[in-house]
Nucleic acid binder design. Structure first.
Length: 905
RNA sequence: GGGCGAUUAGCUCAGUUGGUUAGAGCAUCCGCUUUACACGCGGGAGGUCACAGGUUCGAGUCCUGUAUCGCCCACCA
């Protein structure tokens, strides 16, 4: 193999698929300590994540990319630390979403689900699931997700269905599930109840309708009432006023007549009524408004349902029966106008409840549903968050959790859908007994009759997804997986499904397993477009991750979503950022090519290991610092910052400086070259390990090449710790770099190299300013004072990095005479002269040096002020000393600048 | 109405134990086929860190208030 065999540009497209298939075939995605294996050791603590199961109907979007990248990063990190890491994948049957999809498909053929009947519809949905359900999991693989696919689950598969039944029956037996008529949010389009969370409110222009509620006694008196939904007049059973409202007190207890219908209903007093709003009198429709429902219960009002499941007026609506709700609104209002009952209509902004899925207007309706008595579960959930048994990251979201738990309403778990877990309840047609059972009963335990009919409702999707962390591990069976891997470690998800999912898992987990389902909740933000706008199809700003990965590679996209993110905060994503990170992947690739080339060209047989050069020591010290920082940042879930640090180190330190310095060392040949190649390998190896959780593909590919090249060469360092085969088999299971204690030499080497960098930069700067062509080697004279020894050892590196002709490079402690015809500058108390005959414009030099002196003087003044203040007494001695040293250096520099400027007089 | 977040370079954003002259990517300007990389290299310009107070020797970072934007929850007919 030679460098030239590796393409100049990293080819991710051929690499990614091959690497993923290889990882999977080698079994690297399986936990290293597995109850299924004979050498299983139950005492080793595993790291476990249950994937937030995407909808089986789903197509990959950036949200998926973000959470999968983050979870994969956590899993890969732990795996590389030697922790048995299990990531359980799977998909959710997503009741409403999937049913809608299939219905839409059928609609194209002109078929309604009712035409097929329940069984056939279910059969076709399964068919559809088998056909397309694999799409999303394939796309998840594409991102590089190192899930244990042999443990993949689906919320409707056999084991999970068993878990759902167990959960339902237990709650029922405990008296925590009840069935009854309640006011629910009804979706007329989907013809099912939906939960409060599935309703979204939108501000829309509407009208406030004012009309007369005539007294029934024929006196001609009336109470003015305002409503936004006139059609609900058909269901009115009272008019309410505030008990202390002087305008209406006299009517309380009397009867008024429902417009058009002519029913007589009472006027009641209730302090719920806001005297200042509208007319101060409120019509009460207990059947179609949650507040009215509550008032109705307080006052024992009859309840009239006047809409059917499709939101058409039913038989209680008299002449309006059969009309759509909005049609009825128009017609009724027109009729009332004709009857002289209308006062006025005002424009009014409504807060319209709409279905999150279908988008149609939700109608509050009373219907018989199944509910979970949630208060005891919520209380338990609150306790584990309060005690810290479950930690929320970022911490500020704990407030959100509490707030919701404290105001929680009973959970409506029944849905009138055909796709989902059918509620395990049977009704005996003979004796009307209700049977709740873990297994399908055949006869009624009470009367022995065999005419049993199962409840037609299915369970809310979130009822089953709430069981996910343990149902996927085998619960309710005490399986080896459940025993070993539960509770899981981290639940990573978006903050938008805290209520839907996270809290339900906590509540159900505590209830059914007696344990928290996970110890940490890590919440990520949402991905927005490059201007911070929410991505939506209507705005047309949706970025599809698949073509992005096709064009720029998976690693680039992963790195972008990981590094752009800070926990709990939304991030903006643009293709520009992905592009920049694709360049980073390419930078890695080319650094790899260089190192491999260096290995190949280095002499084969080492004689003596030479001392490390300053550059060798410096880059190693820098690397150790990065490793320590990354370790600390990972512990604090600061993945983005960790990635940035590695990026900066790799590009800014390793590639820009160390590789350049190494070129000189390599050119020396012999032992120096041999060991420099090994040093390059060592640093690159550590960098690849650090980066692997972020950009798994390019790092794995490169690491393999690097390892082989180092082995073949017999390098002093080969990127693999020994295992029984002699080598770590793959980067994915290689050890993550461990932080080491800070050693004394690090600070000194770092400072020395920083000195070199500063002087090199000053020279480069001068060169650019004087328009010296980069290729031209120039003479230089440096008076380095007490820094001479440091620079002396770095002569070669120095000359190379600054473009100095080594034959015309004078380094001295001090000069007897300032070189003539030279461009001069002073840095860190050192004088630098570049004899550039013909380029020296005395006047320009004086101006430049004067400006330099002004800058330095400003710094000196600042430091003088600072050190003259109480800072000197109060700040830690170390900090003060640092500033004092700085002042001395600046003063020294100023003196030298002054000397230089005088030489131009 | 209650809660939360954001406000840092032209744009998008980092900056979590308070401590150099506040950083990155993109954009921009100048110069470079320097034998890993032009998906690159070197150099530059660009910021009163929203505003007003406060704590501190020291504040982008901590506290209080204000403004603007955004999100969540609750919702008055």
């Amino acid at each position: 193999m030679s460098t030239f065999e590796l393409p100049k540009t990293y080819d991710f497209s051929t690499t990614e698929q091959r690497i993923y298939a290889w990882w999977e075939s080698q079994g690297y995605f399986k936990p290293s300590n597995d109850p299924a294996k004979p050498d299983f050791d139950p005492s080793i603590k595993p790291f476990v994540i249950s994937i937030p199961p995407p909808n089986v109907t789903g197509e990959l979007h950036l949200g998926h990319v973000a959470f999968i990248s983050t979870e994969d990063l956590m899993i890969r990190y732990q795996r590389m630390r030697g922790v048995p890491a299990l990531w359980v994948p799977g998909t959710d049957h997503a009741g409403i979403a999937t049913q809608l999809q299939v219905e839409k498909l059928l609609a194209k053929q002109g078929i309604k689900r009712e035409d097929l009947g329940r069984d056939e519809f279910e059969r076709r949905t399964w068919e559809w699931k088998h056909k397309y359900g694999g799409q999303i999991t394939q796309q998840i693989r594409r991102i590089g997700a190192s899930c244990d696919w042999e443990r993949e689950r689906f919320t409707l598969d056999e084991g999970l269905s068993k878990a759902v039944r167990e959960a339902f029956v237990r709650l029922y037996e405990k008296g925590l599930i009840y069935r009854g008529p309640r006011m629910v949010n009804w979706s007329p389009g989907l013809k099912t109840a939906v939960s409060d969370l599935e309703v979204e409110y939108s501000q829309e222009p509407g009208k406030l309708y004012y009309f007369k509620y005539m007294l029934a006694d024929g006196s001609g008196e009336f109470i003015p009432v305002a409503t936004t939904r006139p059609e609900t007049i058909l269901g009115d059973t009272a008019v309410a006023v505030h008990p202390e409202d002087e305008r209406y007190q006299k009517y309380v207890g009397r009867m008024v007549t429902v417009p058009i219908l002519g029913r007589e209903i009472p006027v009641i007093a209730d302090d719920y009524v806001d005297r200042a709003f509208g007319t101060g009198a409120l019509k009460i429709t207990p059947g179609h408004d949650p507040n009215d429902y509550a008032i109705g219960e307080r006052h024992n009002l009859p309840l009239i349902s006047m809409l059917d499941t499709t939101a058409h007026v039913n038989e209680n609506g008299g002449a309006y029966a059969g009309m759509d709700r909005f049609e009825a609104r128009k017609k009724l209002w027109a009729d009332m106008q004709a009857a002289g009952l209308v006062i006025k209509e005002d424009a009014y902004t409504l807060n319209v409840p709409r279905s999150q899925r279908g988008g149609e207007i939700i109608e509050p309706m009373v219907s018989t549903q199944w509910f979970v008595r949630i208060a005891p579960l919520a209380k338990a959930a609150e306790a584990v968050i309060e005690s810290g048994e479950i930690k929320i990251v970022p911490e500020r979201f704990t407030k959100t959790f509490y707030n919701w738990l404290e105001n929680i309403q009973d959970w409506c778990i029944s849905r009138q859908l055909w796709w989902g877990h059918r509620i395990p309840v049977w009704y005996c047609q003979d004796c009307k007994e209700t049977i709740v059972s873990r297994t399908d009963p055949t006869v009624c335990p009470k009367c022995g009759g065999s005419h049993l009919e199962q409840e037609t409702d299915v369970l809310d999707t979130w009822f089953s997804s709430g069981l996910w962390p343990f149902s996927t591990l085998g619960w309710p069976e005490e399986t080896p997986d459940y025993r070993y891997f539960y509770p899981t470690s981290v639940l990573e998800t978006g903050y938008d499904i805290i209520f839907f999912w996270v809290l339900r898992m906590i509540m159900e987990g505590l209830e059914f397993t007696g344990q928290v389902p996970f110890h940490t909740v890590y919440l990520h933000g949402l991905i927005r477009d490059e201007h911070g706008q929410k991505m939506s199809k209507t705005k047309g700003n949706v970025i599809d991750p698949l073509p992005i990965m096709d064009e720029m590679g998976t690693d680039a996209l992963r790195f972008t979503v990981l590094v752009g993110a800070t926990p709990g905060n939304d991030m903006s994503l643009s293709t520009k950022k992905v592009e920049a990170n694709a360049h980073f992947a390419n930078k890695l690739w080319n650094a790899g090519r260089f190192v491999i080339g260096a290995l190949e060209n280095a002499p084969a047989a080492p004689v003596n290991a030479p001392d490390w050069t300053l550059a060798d020591s410096w880059v190693w010290a820098r690397l150790q610092t990065v490793i320590r920082d990354v370790d600390r940042l990972f512990t604090n879930y600061q993945y983005g910052e960790a990635g940035r640090q590695i990026y900066d180190f790799f590009w800014g330190d390793f590639a820009d400086w160390y590789v350049e310095a190494a070129k000189l060392q390599l050119s020396e040949g012999g032992d120096r070259a041999f060991y420099t190649a090994s040093s390059l390998v060592r640093v690159l190896d550590a960098s690849l390990r650090l980066l692997h959780p972020f950009t798994p593909f390019v790092t794995e590919e490169l690491w393999g090449l690097l390892k082989r090249a180092a082995q073949e060469k017999g390098a002093a360092y080969v990127p693999a710790n020994g295992d029984e085969n002699g080598w770590e088999a793959a980067l994915i299971i290689a050890q993550y770099p461990l932080p080491t204690p800070v050693e004394d030499w690090e600070a000194a080497k770092t400072a020395d190299f920083a000195l070199l960098q500063e002087v090199v930069r000053a020279i480069r700067n001068l060169r650019t300013e004087k328009r010296v062509p980069p290729s031209r080697k120039i003479p230089a004279v440096i008076a380095a004072g007490d820094r001479l020894s440091v620079l002396e050892t770095q002569r070669g590196a120095f000359a190379l990095l600054a473009g100095i002709d080594p034959a015309a490079f004078i380094l001295a402690a001090s000069l007897n005479e300032i070189p003539a015809n030279a461009v001069a500058i002073a840095v860190l108390g050192m004088e630098i002269y570049l004899p550039l005959e013909g380029l020296v414009d005395v006047e320009a030099e004086r101006i430049r040096l004067q400006k330099e002196m002004d800058d330095v003087t400003t710094q000196i003044e600042r430091l003088n002020t600072l050190l003259g203040s109480s800072f000197a007494e109060r700040a830690p001695a170390q900090v003060v000393e640092r500033e004092r040293q700085k002042l001395i250096t600046f003063q020294d520099t100023l003196a030298r600048l002054r000397g230089q400027i005088e030489s131009y007089q």
